[in-house]
Lab assay of single mutants.
Amino acid sequence: MAAGGDHGSPDSYRSPLASRYASPEMCFVFSDRYKFRTWRQLWLWLAEAEQTLGLPITDEQIQEMKSNLENIDFKMAAEEEKRLRHDVMAHVHTFGHCCPKAAGIIHLGATSCYVGDNTDLIILRNALDLLLPKLARVISRLADFAKERASLPTLGFTHFQPAQLTTVGKRCCLWIQDLCMDLQNLKRVRDDLRFRGVKGTTGTQASFLQLFEGDDHKVEQLDKMVTEKAGFKRAFIITGQTYTRKVDIEVLSVLASLGASVHKICTDIRLLANLKEMEEPFEKQQIGSSAMPYKRNPMRSERCCSLARHLMTLVMDPLQTASVQWFERTLDDSANRRICLAEAFLTADTILNTLQNISEGLVVYPKVIERRIRQELPFMATENIIMAMVKAGGSRQDCHEKIRVLSQQAASVVKQEGGDNDLIERIQVDAYFSPIHSQLDHLLDPSSFTGRASQQVQRFLEEEVYPLLKPYESVMKVKAELCL
């Protein structure tokens, strides 16, 4: 049975990233139509530049190519590739079939990587351009969430054990800070992308030097003109047959890092959902379990974690691919890159769409948070109580021993009897502590235990987050809708 299948058929496997999760716009960027249309555009740009620099290419040939950029006979191309065992030459023939007058000058002087690699770089750039505003929107939604809850005390956790208090907004800023680093890295790697350009079979530009009869300047002009037509500021000066596969490492490393950030955020949300302090959106008709109707599973956060793990592992592909590119190139890269580049971007696209949807509907339960604080705060307040007693004339050592005994009794009630923490009640009825009984409410005010959390939130948002989001103001209103 021949390899390949009808990918629109229910009898043929289709990647869930495309069929179930990723956005239509990201799927289109990695589609065959987008790819092969870009090949034709690159052939047109090459012909236009070659004509401008004096090669015998007519206006009629150029116009014929322009008129057929979208006229792609995919069936013919597939048949040609089956016959020739070469995808680029299959599309040269297919393009030439609908451009008979231009057929002889299509791909003039070029090698397969002229269309293959340059198209990949265009796709990487455009895919990054799709991700950047999506990530900015996630940051914006979380920034709104953090600002609104900047002063809401909550129990902090280290080692997932109760620690000092923080605020809900401050905790959210930990998430935002990681995503801001990801946004900066995505922008950097996007701006650092260079075009492969017009380089020939081993990167020496020998074929173009021959076409222009040894004119170095025209060869350099050709490279520059096509690079500018493709919208790049610069091209690699040095290439082998391909652009260095280190570029793929750079791009997928940034995406993998984004995956790590999203995994951490969504894990926190899942843990908070278990504590009943916070939940992701839950639709009115949504079913959490087929057997347990009360369940409210954090399905979206779980999906993000599941896909983020996949995204983090994909960076190993370009690392290994770059390491086995012998001399000017081997074909070890080809099949692998067809999979890992598309999957990385479709996965990143999915987790950003999902995280935006989550961040637009996060639900906080202040009463649950308050109750958990009441359970733990008495123990945390013991040092403040000791200091207040010393100020009232008591002995630190005597007070410490009193607190120690009462704390152990209260802990026994919590752990052995399943009761509430009654340390404060014990202190309130103990005559030894009568000098500070009137101060206990103040000493137990949760806001006095959150330090500068709310001020940190305000400063972080104003100095770091809002300036970073400013270039994306025009796209901030787009909502994230999930079908599944």
Rank of each mutant, 00 (worst) to 15 (best):
D6V: 11
D11Y: 10
S12T: 11
A22T: 14
M26S: 03
S31R: 05
S31N: 00
S31L: 02
Y34K: 07
W39K: 00
Q51I: 08
G54W: 04
T58D: 11
T58Q: 12
D59F: 11
S67D: 11
S67T: 13
E70C: 09
E79Y: 15
E81L: 01
K82L: 15
H91Y: 07
V92W: 00
F95C: 05
H97W: 13
C98K: 13
A102V: 10
A102Y: 03
A103Y: 04
S112N: 04
Y114Q: 04
Y114S: 04
G116C: 13
G116K: 01
I123T: 14
I123R: 05
L130F: 11
I139Y: 07
I139M: 10
S140A: 14
E148K: 12
E148Q: 14
G156P: 03
H159M: 03
A163V: 02
G169I: 01
I176D: 05
D178W: 02
L179G: 06
L179P: 03
D192I: 08
L193N: 04
G200V: 00
E213D: 07
H217D: 11
K218S: 12
Q221E: 13
K224C: 11
M225C: 10
A235V: 15
R245D: 00
L255W: 03
V262Q: 05
H263K: 03
R270H: 01
R270Q: 06
N274Q: 09
N274L: 06
E277V: 04
F282A: 11
K295P: 01
S301F: 02
S301P: 05
L307R: 02
R309G: 03
R309S: 07
T313H: 08
S323I: 02
E328L: 02
T330I: 03
N336E: 03
A348G: 13
A348M: 13
T350F: 05
L352M: 13
N353Y: 05
V364R: 04
K367R: 12
A381T: 07
I385V: 12
M389Q: 10
M389D: 10
M389N: 05
V390W: 05
A392F: 07
G393Y: 07
G394P: 08
E401F: 04
L406T: 08
A410K: 08
D420L: 06
N421K: 05
D422N: 09
D422S: 07
I427F: 12
I427S: 05
Q428S: 15
A431Q: 14
Y432A: 09
L440C: 10
P446H: 14
S447D: 13
R452S: 14
R452I: 12
A453Q: 00
E462S: 13
E464G: 07
P467C: 09
L469F: 08
L469V: 15
V475M: 15
K477S: 11
